[in-house]
Nucleic acid binder design. Structure first.
Lengths: 219, 219
DNA sequence: GCTTTTCAATACGCGCCCGTATGGTTTTGT
DNA sequence: ACAAAACCATACGGGCGCGTATTGAAAAGC
């Protein structure tokens, strides 16, 4: 613990190395942690390197956000893109989002700087795309677009909130079997699959919602 | 638009004035916006004033957080503390949290800096207290503590997520009648009434619950 | 009336970050 | 082998925020 340490620069840094480091910095220190000199130190180089790869700090920020957006969409697509069953698709999205703590933190950290117009632009796109998946899935479950939008928003809000809870008050989150129970409860509640067969009426929704709590909750 | 403008300092500033200004700053610029010199400018004075009222920046931050915690608990207590019906209590918490956009922004801004130990301490307390209300309410609805914890967490996550959506992608949030529909959907889903009839068996509660379904009044 | 106390302006040094300028070293092409 | 390009170090000026020191002026106490 003598100095901030310096990872040896294997060969020669690329712009992408800087972008990755910037994302790392955001995840653990927020948007303001994207500072040229500290990043240079953590990469074991000096500013001289940076200003060869980028014209200024904002360019780095943009590169980092682009990397983030790419990863985000690729990941989601790769994991749930080919799932045919809409129910399972929603489940996968949920689990994926609830499992990857790291990416969750990153999302929250970036979203926290939504006042920055550049950041806001990216958050907008990523959020819209994610919500789009959910919307499609709920429509595939048989909901008309209005109700699908409500349920999709509901589900999205819930998992965003879970991320927040996980970050801010981890003790509130159950672990092990209890966590699985919690997940199951949310699935049953947020994905009323009976609605498809039963036709879509107000009563159907209520039935689906209420029934969700008495199902066998073993394991 | 010549300078950042300066609100005239009515009389003489108090420590509380500074704390209020600091909270304002957090709401619109994040934790880092709590900076002595900028705040002094916005208050129409100089640092000389600040360092009479506070020993340093951290003291201001603490004062702001204390003010926040006080407001937060007072507000919640004042609005839903005396509501006897647990169903209505949950509804009120939800509506309150979903209506006050300002306080929501503030919460998110503060929580975004949970890496700061001081901040984390306060977030912890406020979150725990809020969650406590929900937990009690669900227990009053007839759930055993495990299930009540699950439902409370679920509801809390959902409304935290709604805050986030409202801040980051406001277009996703419906307005007017559609918003009331959305709220109703969440109420019906997150506050299962069946348990009331099964558990406590108070007819009055059921009446109150059904009554609340039609009075959607949250702009 | 005069002294304290209260509140605030001004001036200074420090640290940290940005961006530029300039030069140095290592690779690559031929 | 030599020039060009890629990559990085060092040094500088400027901005901005923190904290201290010192002085100044209005209100309160006696």
């Amino acid at each position: 613990m003598t100095a901030p340490a310096a990872a040896e620069p294997r060969q020669s840094l690329t712009a992408d190395d800087w972008a990755r480091a910037a994302l790392e910095a955001i995840a653990s220190g927020g948007l303001d942690a994207v500072a040229v000199e500290p990043l240079a130190r953590s990469l074991g180089v000096t500013k001289g390197s940076f200003y060869w790869h980028f014209p200024n700090r904002e360019a780095l920020l943009r590169a980092a956000l682009e990397l983030w957006e790419r990863r985000e969409t690729e990941d989601v697509l790769a994991r749930v893109g080919d799932e045919p069953d809409p129910y399972e698709r929603i489940v996968k999205i949920f689990k994926e989002a609830n499992a990857g703590y790291r990416s969750g933190r990153l999302y929250l950290a970036i979203a926290a700087a939504e006042d920055n117009p550049l950041v806001n632009e990216f958050v907008q796109r990523v959020s819209t795309r994610r919500m789009g998946y959910l919307l499609q899935s709920y429509q595939a479950l048989g909901f008309d677009s209005v109700r699908a939008a409500h349920w999709a928003r509901f589900a999205y809000a819930t998992f965003m909130g879970n991320l927040q809870i996980r970050r801010d008050t981890p003790e509130m989150m159950p672990t092990g079997a209890a966590f699985n129970e919690y997940l199951k409860l949310m699935f049953k509640t947020l994905i009323p699959r009976e609605t498809i067969a039963r036709g879509i009426g107000e009563d159907g929704l209520i039935a689906a919602a209420t029934r969700s709590q008495e199902g066998g909750d073993t394991q």
